[in-house]
Nucleic acid binder design. Structure first.
Lengths: 217, 217
DNA sequence: TAGCTCTTGTGAAAAATTGTACAAGGAGAA
DNA sequence: TTCTCCTTGTACAATTTTTCACAAGAGCTA
């Protein structure tokens, strides 16, 4: 087995990446239950997809399984996280220390191995200087310095929607190239910056649509 | 224009539903800025999709535009929300009053028009009876009664991953048919129950993958 | 009314994704 | 070693989703 996993083919669907994240989550559970080897079908079932889908997704990055046997849980986890680049720590900054922001600081720094919030910012001068979960709330003017010193690539936005674009601009100017936006607003960024939106109202809309559809059938 | 909007065609992609939620979000902003009419291209650009995509998505539900003119912002919002069934209130219950749970109670009840949390539950006997944002934390044994009395269809899970399945079982037994799961764990439900997963580590994985990919090019 | 401009709604084409089916290959038994 | 049993990895087929391109239609002007 090689040390470094590079994609075998050019283009990998975003859906595949998202599924790989799920596989890791489920593999962690298998590992916790002391399962050592798992084949594609049980893994797929636990993730709510088809076995062939799992095999195809993994095939983008390499051959991690043993024919006739399956996948070694621990080594597959390692292979996936290494392939995606989440096998080491990613420091992050967060802008917007409201209720949602506080929850995320706490939630992310507790749960995630690969992701840690290192500094927090807010535009509200009354909040600057406050201590939140051990962090001092800083002024956005300090983002750039912080990002450069700590080599931070990822920023999180948890402001109100009206403030999202401003927060985004601060982050982009500071040199951030990836943004996770929790604010219910679309933001404009240069092509060089990647944005992911987390908006669970989308999920609620989807649930409601399925509920109302179901009634008609 | 008719009063009730029913889908014109049989199957509508989930991706379309999710995009429609985004359109509503963006239309709200146009409305706030007193824009009265918008055509598909500017709307699409603000949502990060193609104009033809917007038109096709809307076409699943009816003809809401005026040729040569565009869409009336207010009436399009109304048409979409009515089509999806989110033009009236959906009461919800939440299980798991930890940090994430608290944040969601506050966040959802402040922001969303169509969605309101009506009661909150926790398995931890030490939490039961506590007051959180005006709600008393109840025992899971009371879910069924609550769901029936208030005609609640949607449940939210914000427990720790180990507890997610138990919370889910409580909800399903109580008659809940749609679940929004924030816990980083997959849950098993009967076919009649819809589940949507909110897992922003997926989004973080995606960002990191794109960052590491970008380096290589 | 006729003519011009603009944008929708939609069939058809293209692209992307998912599912199928099976050859290839590893492990263990005889 | 040889045979059998399993499961992977992948070529190909089917399906789904997105994009393209344009006819149809609405408003405005003269």
């Amino acid at each position: 087995m090689s040390e470094l996993y590079e994609p075998k083919s050019k283009h990998i669907p975003q859906a595949t990446i998202k599924r790989l994240a799920t596989y890791v989550q489920v593999l962690k559970n298998f590992d916790r239950d002391n399962v050592e080897v798992v084949s594609s079908n049980p893994l797929a079932e636990a993730c709510g997809v088809q076995g062939s889908q799992v095999r195809k997704d993994l095939a983008y990055f390499g051959e991690f399984g043993i024919r006739g046997v399956g996948y070694h849980v621990k080594s597959l986890m390692q292979s996936i996280t290494s392939s995606l680049g989440v096998d080491h720590e990613w420091p992050m900054v967060l802008v917007g220390v409201g209720n949602l922001g506080r929850a995320m600081i706490n939630h992310i720094n507790r749960h995630a191995h690969a992701f840690t919030i290192k500094a927090i910012f807010d535009c509200d001068p009354f909040k600057i200087g406050d201590k939140v979960y051990g962090f001092e709330v800083l002024s956005p003017s300090e983002i750039q310095d912080c990002v450069e010193k700590m080599h931070i690539a990822i920023g999180i936005i948890t402001t109100r929607p009206e403030r999202a674009q401003r927060a985004c601009d601060h982050l982009v100017n500071a040199g951030i190239t990836a943004i996770l936006n929790f604010a219910p607003a679309r933001i404009k960024v240069p092509d060089t910056v990647k944005v992911e939106y987390v908006d669970f109202f989308r999920n609620l809309y989807s649930l409601v649509f399925n509920l109302t559809q179901g009634e008609k059938n």
